[in-house]
Nucleic acid binder design. Structure first.
Lengths: 326, 326
DNA sequence: AAAATAGTTGAAAGCGCTTACAGCTTCGTA
DNA sequence: TACGAAGCTGTAAGCGCTTTCAACTATTTT
């Protein structure tokens, strides 16, 4: 069943059917009704592939992210997908993990499929192997980077002010009398580097002590690290992390050692994911505006696709969410 | 830049370029090298759209799910996406919420885009409005239903034995001396109905008391419901739920009421999501085999696409994961 | 009533590929 | 040396649409 079959049965040309299907050009009312009747009769669905041949677009965008099982990416991706669907776009989801090669593979597949744009969520911190393909792609389609940063024509970035967020965290804890900070971060992403920078700035500004450790993603790694630190006699009265889950690992370990939170040690997470209300005591954290980030990313993209000028970089302010661990 | 440009520069016909690109047919080594050199020179990426015109496939499948922010769907979707990418397929992600109309819209978009198959994750329990479109689609492409059930040619289902899982839960708690069950479930999906059935069977089999409530998705709804029950003097010594998050809501409420878990009341969740290790005490739950479910779904799909015969229904056994709340 | 205009329709080209088919070359074998 | 088979390559058709352009019809305008 194709447009010819419809045209034949409706006794019109395929051009007319096409016009009815796309509501483009002028079609007499009576003709339109004739065509629509046949369309309905067969429940006809035109082929986006064939349309794509001409328009060179499938109204599809690719979203390249680390791992959708991580609540952060899930929330951002959901927001993007929903915003796009309103505009009639579909979303191809790509989970790359931290594997650059896989990321490059995915990018190639997306280019092959002629996506209208690619949204990268959570880019690694400046990987030159990635720079070249991305810049090449950007010559043909716009690229949006969520929580990354890229100064380049046709590449737009939308991100949360992570460094400021961490400064706010430190400030808050300093105001609560904390002086010995522990910072645990779990991934070397652009966002991760921003947080780290914010943390470092803040501790030096407030002249408080700090130690920084990179731990693996997940609750256990954080738990084990804190355990190791406690057993080695390391002293701290505040734990900050780049992720809620990491904070919960720390929190669990502190509790296991009968250390009162927030009495003796304060703990703060990051992202305000649902995890933060699941643990006990509930976790103070940072609302990193996941939903808004996705929404704005699509807004920027939409502007660009319409040919309007869009801000090449958008920064959203995060907010502290204070609960029971501080 | 298209296949003609490559052919011209390599001094061959487009047919030869096509053969090199797809590694199909016979091409002399020297010719292949000539073509590959040009291909590399321009970093040529063929258009999947044009290819799709002929092959009628974009090597893309659609996954239609409720909400990727829910860890259950995120895990299943991740597993599906990863398994598919190994086979060279991309995944279009659709979050429909519980809105049937939106689901139908998405299905239509997927059909338009000529996906090779649609994987439905978490279907509502027998909605006739959905039956017709699904059956119609299945006449053209295979449909896989994960955690749903559908007796129909070209529709395959892969699901977890949820009813058995709940029976196991009840059994486990009965063996711990529990006699007054509370069951909280949060969504009227096929899976939800299976769990409910399993629960009902088990309580009647063991001749224990039970009350069942439908609550909204999320921690708060469960918290409030349990709170209401406790304040009205309702007595129970075990809480079962259809979701980890619901269980955690209950758990938090019990703790707030100074009720010892698992001393006085046992709590069990469902899914073994990361949430279950975040709460305190850590949650006993059911491993609903999210990763495996996705993997098997793709395995079945792959068989079908290759034209092999596949089992129309696959059932995977769940496993109890006992932690501190039982 | 004629002319100008606007509205409506269809023929045909082409989007960038795959693939059947035919023709040509090369090679092995009698 | 000749002939058939096998390997290689190109021509051309076609996938199902959109869109331009020209032609034709209805509606105004003068």
């Amino acid at each position: 069943m194709n447009i010819y079959d419809i045209a034949r049965e409706a006794n019109v040309s395929i051009a007319t059917v096409s016009r009815v299907l796309n509501d483009s050009g002028n079609v007499r009312d009576i003709t339109r009704q004739k065509v629509e009747a046949v369309l309905k009769k067969y429940n006809y669905v035109p082929s986006a592939i064939a349309r794509g041949m001409m328009t060179n677009s499938l109204k599809t965008i690719g979203i390249v992210t680390i791992d959708i099982r991580n609540l952060y990416y899930a929330n951002v991706a959901h927001s993007i997908e929903q915003s796009l669907s309103v505009l009639g776009f579909n979303t191809i989801l790509c989970n790359t993990g931290y594997d650059i090669e896989q990321k490059i593979n995915y990018l190639r597949m997306l280019v092959e499929k002629k996506v209208d744009s690619i949204i990268l969520v959570g880019s690694p911190f400046k990987d030159p192997n990635l720079d070249e393909p991305i810049e090449q792609i950007s010559r043909n389609i716009p690229i949006i980077i969520v929580n990354g940063c890229y100064e380049h024509p046709n590449i737009y970035s939308v991100r949360c002010n992570d460094s400021k967020a961490l400064e706010k965290c430190v400030e808050h804890l300093v105001s609560k009398g904390r002086r010995n900070f522990l910072y645990l971060y779990d991934a070397e992403t652009f966002s991760g580097s921003q947080k780290l920078m914010g943390f470092k700035n803040a501790v030096s500004k407030h002249n408080v002590k700090s130690e920084i450790f990179l731990v693996k993603t997940g609750l256990d790694a954080a738990y084990n690290k804190v355990n190791e630190l406690l057993e080695s006699g390391f002293c701290f009265d505040a734990v900050l992390t780049s992720e809620d889950l990491t904070a919960i690992g720390a929190l669990k370990c502190l509790t296991a050692h009968n250390i009162n939170v927030p009495g003796e040690v304060s703990v703060m997470g990051f992202n305000n994911s649902v995890l933060s209300i699941c643990c006990t005591p509930s976790l103070s954290t940072v609302d990193s505006k996941m939903e808004k980030l996705g929404r704005i990313a699509v807004k920027v993209l939409h502007k660009v696709l319409k040919g309007e000028k869009a801000e090449s970089s958008t920064i959203i302010e995060a907010e502290l969410v204070l609960r029971e661990t501080t």
